[in-house]
């Protein structure tokens, strides 16, 4: 099966004059099978990229929704190897898959082995919320060896010097955190985001930019799509499952929000 790379996904969206929709779901939430079904539903309903989050006990960059979903997944006994199986299933269904994970589970797995197994499972890239390029020597070497794209985060507080250094180390796309805070839907899109995106473009006119933190509706997706290359949505999608009375309702809500967001990224 040939993987559709992140670069191709962004290039295609650009030629269609729209933004890429990246939808996030924790692996194994609330069960392994259920999370695969959710991710495939998101893919079918218009998410261009599925961002699988590896559940972690201490997710400091995440707000209450993702933390709760991660806790549920871990309480259900999900393992790192389950996450790789989930990636394999979702990639086999035709989705472009990236993994988001805190650093310790990778270090514990073995950095090179993880890059190898991640590539074998069909993921194209890795987002590392608590790994900055300064500490990423081993990861940069392993991801080069196994052809995994590297997405580091930049923030409104990043200095120009750090923006340039981080962009040099990214491959695929850069994750721009729209505001100074943790993940979670907000009532309005951060005013800091457009300025950050402009600063990134000045530093690197080519690198695709995904904007995350605080996006949860089609209108907000459209607002972000107006200035960014990709729109990253997590908590709002996860809430569809978290708050649903049953599995079928959750999936219906997930499809419905995914297609609303997919419409949004096409209204720029």
């Amino acid at each position: 099966m040939s993987r559709v790379s992140i670069a191709e996904t962004f290039a295609k969206a650009k030629s269609d004059n729209r933004a890429v929709l990246i939808g996030c779901m924790p692996a194994g939430f609330p069960t392994v099978d259920h999370s695969i079904e959710s991710m495939i539903a998101m893919h079918e309903a218009g998410c261009d990229v599925i961002e699988v989050e590896l559940p972690y006990s201490d997710p400091v960059m995440d707000g209450p929704v993702i933390q709760k979903a991660s806790d549920i997944a871990l309480a259900g006994g999900v393992r790192t190897r389950d996450t790789l199986k989930i990636i394999e299933a979702v990639a086999s269904a035709g989705a472009t898959v990236v993994l988001m994970t805190y650093w310790n589970p990778i270090e514990k797995y073995g950095v090179d082995a993880f890059a190898r197994d991640l590539a074998a499972a069909g993921a194209t890239g890795l987002i590392t919320p608590d790994l900055i390029p300064d500490e990423a020597g081993e990861w940069i070497a392993a991801s080069d060896r196994h052809g995994i794209d590297r997405t580091f985060l930049v923030a409104p507080s990043s200095t120009d010097e750090r923006l340039a250094m981080t962009l040099e180390n990214c491959r695929g796309f850069v994750y721009a955190t729209a505001l100074m805070g943790v993940t979670g839907a907000r009532t309005s899109v951060s005013s800091q985001a457009p300025e950050l995106v402009a600063r990134i473009r000045r530093a690197d006119p080519v690198m695709p930019i995904g904007v995350g933190l605080g996006v949860g509706t089609g209108d907000q997706a459209a607002e972000v799509a107006a200035f960014a290359d990709g729109v990253i949505v997590g908590s709002a999608l996860i809430r569809c499952v978290l708050e649903a009375p049953d599995r079928a309702t959750g999936l219906t809500r997930l499809r419905s929000l995914s297609s609303e967001l997919a419409d949004g990224v096409r209204r720029r």
Partner: peptide, 18 residues
């Protein structure tokens, strides 16, 4: 860079680096 041998360092979101 804040290391004691292989230990220490900064494993935090970029937002906190500044």
């Amino acid at each position: 860079s804040g290391h004691f041998g292989r230990y220490g360092g900064r494993f935090v979101p970029e937002a906190l680096i500044k």
